Amino acid sequence: MTETPSDPIFAELRPHLVRLAYRMLGSVADAEDIVQNAWMRWLGTDPASVREPAAFLRTIVTRLCLNELKSARRRRESYVGSWLPEPIFDPEDGDAVDDITLPLMLALERLSPLERAAFLLHDVFGMDFDDVSSTIGREAAACRKLASRARAHVAEARPRFAVGKEQGLKLATAFFTASRAGDMASLRALLSEDVIVYADGGGKVPTSLRPHIGLAAVMLLHEQLARVFCAQPSQLIHYAVIDGLPGFVTVEGGDVVQTTALHIEQEKVVAIYCTRNPDKLQHIIGAMPR
């Protein structure tokens, strides 16, 4: 069951609730399930008795996410290889509702569930600490401390040299062209000395189980991949901004959908995030032309 046009309150708030749940969980599917659960609870509520529907539904979603994080953390402890959040595309008009990028999402994984909630609600979604307090069930002073600790943990993950969307996608185009053509000289010129490659296959498709760290290791990886691309060329679906980073969507080896997101600083690629786990790409695969 999904909300209908006859319920304009929930329909209007739904995109915000999904984004909140996704930022809490790093999973599109889990976020959708959480919001669906919130919808069912909303059906059992008299809207006229709710003074602030947005705050009411945000509280439901946040508390459901806090419960879900307990089991999600257990699942990630046994995850095969590198874990990356499910990729989402930024709005086409570029007017994203927050500045959370993929590296920051990974930094959030190191926080406690309450730290994550306090940081997101206050620093990202702009709630004051009294509202955060009522949402997560902690005193306002405790929420300030939670957000402060979280802020310190994620500070390093925020981009120090933000790249514009147009320039970012230009560099993503150059990276795709060089890597798929086996142009190692051009590729090397795009990479920083301490570049890292993360690949998430979840044990479902072939991929490296550990990150490749440093320019030499990453160049060796792409020299090997160039032979694969020569035998089975990548099919480029489109370029996109993926979780705040420039990148692209491809089909590799004839049937493996992959998103590649590039963390760029000072015109150099400092990290490459490849998501190949089909369980994390169903929302993308379902939208692709047949």
Rank of each mutant, 00 (worst) to 15 (best):
T2Q: 14
F10H: 01
P15T: 14
L20M: 13
A21K: 07
R23K: 10
I34A: 11
V35C: 04
M40D: 08
E52V: 12
L66Q: 09
N67S: 06
V80K: 11
D90Q: 08
V97R: 14
V97M: 14
D99E: 15
L102G: 03
L111K: 07
S112A: 08
P113G: 06
R116G: 01
A117D: 02
L120F: 08
H122Q: 10
V132L: 06
S133H: 07
T135M: 05
R138C: 14
A142F: 09
C143A: 12
K145F: 10
H153P: 01
R158G: 00
F161D: 06
A162E: 13
K165L: 15
A174V: 08
A174N: 06
F176L: 07
T177Y: 03
S179E: 07
R180Q: 00
D183Y: 00
M184Q: 04
A185T: 01
S186F: 01
L187G: 00
L190F: 05
D194R: 08
V197F: 03
G201R: 08
V205I: 13
P206N: 07
R210Q: 12
P211G: 04
A216V: 15
A217M: 05
A217G: 06
M219N: 00
L221D: 00
H222R: 05
L225C: 03
A231E: 14
Q232Y: 11
Q235H: 12
L236K: 07
H238T: 15
V241F: 04
L245V: 12
V251H: 04
G253D: 07
G254A: 13
H263P: 02
Q266P: 05
E267Q: 13
V269C: 09
V269P: 03
C274R: 12
K280L: 06
L281G: 00
L281V: 05
H283T: 10
